[in-house]
Design a protein around this nucleic acid. Structure first.
Lengths: 206, 206
DNA sequence: AGCCAATGTAGGCGTCGCCAACAATGCTGT
DNA sequence: ACAGCATTGTTGGCGACGCCTACATTGGCT
């Protein structure tokens, strides 16, 4: 039965696994989601995949490297989700912001631990480079939204930062609270509406 | 020389330490601040304090219990800081909010790792009763601010939640971004002003 | 004075991350 | 076709960690 589980990630093959790196990432994310970050161990990962305890080191120089890679895939998926949320929409800023906020919060709720990992502080200076690039790939979406909103006169004037930071702070803060279950119990759908309306008022032209 | 360090926390005394529990908490927070949460180990703590590796277990049943206690002191200090920020102020909501936001962000910047710990614990299965009480002790301050702001007509109508959640989300989100160093490099003082103004607009009466 | 609960010590268990030495595999150029 | 080599996986070992149990010292209470 544990063998059945292993088969999901490991080709029935011997010696060379085939795609151990991808299997490690997949399994690691499942563990993260199901048992939390503290329960993530390289050795257990290796056991689950039917591979020796040192095999993972061929693909990730240490545990942090695996976490960094995991965060990277998270940013990729987040960017994809946000981009998808903007497709087939009208040009109204309010409409687009609404969609983006919901997509972001949806991602946060569906990937709470992963999101936490993505924003945690301890990335290697080196892996940082790829991470920064990944972050920009999606934050550009927000910037674009803002610039376009300003052009259409639906947003107040000001530098992208002065307008964007409060918006992003609100979005990020709400997603974080919702994902960690820190909001008053009943407040769920309704609260998100309130937050979106709040952002629109805060960012409205003078 | 390591002895000198130990003396800071340990009475030169033998066998019974005197106040090992408090010394553990103090030293643990320093370690957290200086070397991050991953570097915090019960055994090293014990070594630093010149005590055997099992001694801490007399005061904290396991590592998580120590982290919980640490979070608890964090909430206490946060509540104190927020309360202090409201003293000697006028009654204007704008003024009081400004002070509270700055106090919160100040705490977040000065206690980044601890704050992270505080919020990661709550989400845990059964947050201890004391912990829940501690969070309420300070969130009541925010609630009070909101209710009073509404009474004075400086805040829009609505349930405390519908008004408070967006405000707190913004505050929490900005503090979090600032503390994890995720804001554009130059944006520091100015950005906080923008955020406060943003909150006031978002929460203003219709 | 004597006893007991609280506090600290000593040692051991299983797991972890990381390292070094060795083995199997498959790609490459000739 | 095949020899050589880089890639990938294995084995075993090291030190550190969290937690457990059994034992030692202490100070306060009766």
């Amino acid at each position: 039965m544990p063998d059945t589980l292993a088969r999901m990630y490991t080709r029935p093959r011997s010696y060379h696994h085939g795609d151990l790196r991808a299997a490690l990432l997949t399994r690691a994310e499942e563990t993260l989601r199901e048992k939390g970050p503290a329960a993530l161990s390289l050795r257990e990962l290796a056991r689950d995949l039917g591979v020796s305890h040192a095999a993972p080191s061929r693909h990730f120089k240490d545990k942090q490297a695996l976490l960094d890679a995991l965060a990277l895939t998270g940013f990729d998926r987040l960017a994809t989700a946000l981009k998808a949320s903007q497709e087939g929409l009208g040009e109204s800023f309010a409409e687009r912001l609404d969609a983006m906020v919901r997509a972001y919060v949806g991602f946060a709720l569906g990937n709470a631990v992963l999101l936490d990992l993505m924003y945690s502080i301890k990335h290697d200076p080196e892996a940082s480079e790829a991470l920064v690039a990944a972050t920009e790939r999606w934050s550009d979406l927000l910037v674009e939204l803002i610039v376009e909103g300003q052009r259409r006169g639906e947003l107040r004037a000001g530098t992208t930062e002065s307008v964007g930071v409060p918006i992003f702070a609100t979005l990020h803060g709400y997603a974080n609270l919702a994902a960690t279950g820190m909001l008053p119990p009943d407040t769920d759908e309704r609260a998100l509406d309130d937050v979106i309306a709040f952002i629109l008022r805060g960012a409205a032209p003078e």
